[in-house]
Amino acid sequence: MSPELETLRLRPDLMKIFEIIAPGSRVFDLGAGSGDLLKALERHKGALVRGVEISAEGIMECIAKGIPVYQSNLDEGLEDYADQSFDYVILSQTLQQVHKPKFILQEIVRVGRIGVVSIPNFGHWWIRLQLLLKGTMPKTTYIPYDWYDTPNIHLLSIHDFRRLCAEIGIRVRNEWTVSFKEGPLTSLMPIWPNMLAPLGIFEIGRQAEAGAPED
């Protein structure tokens, strides 16, 4: 197994995204991190990959893996990236960290045929319980930060995500639930995602135009 797939195994959300992407696609990762997902897609799915990353360390790691990467802030949008110039645009656990989540979602479906967005679900029961019983800002494996030291400025639930998409005319084509750990509730996640799933992954796209084929 290649080193990047080994790394993905520790990140079931990224592994799920890896599985979703069709072979031979043009893939654009907003927040490429250390570049493992893109490297795996390039090596194992023959994808043409491009990344954007804000941290210098991430940039260094992407370049070390031979991934073309751009140091840029997502809040500036995707400016001069052409409409529908990628098959997939990925935003992995980053939506809650951008200043203009609505704008970035619109940019994703403009630039990509399909957007793949994963979010930590603030509607998860364990989070609700912490706030209800302890009365403190919740901390979990997926949202590990103290309230006073967090990059997360727009936390949201799976419900919130669906509602925003509906409101701004973005179609949710598919959704998956993911948990890092197997537990008694894992198999029930698809039944009540907003309560039981710690992470949600969505495939989004522009609203299908009347009469247009689904894909």
Binding site: A56, I59, I63, Y70, Q71, E79, D80
Partner: peptide, 17 residues
């Protein structure tokens, strides 16, 4: 970098601190 990228080139762009 932007002009090259829009023109279709493979570009990495870095701002070192």
């Amino acid at each position: 970098a932007d002009a090259l990228r829009v023109g279709g080139a493979e570009v990495s762009f870095v701002v070192l601190d």
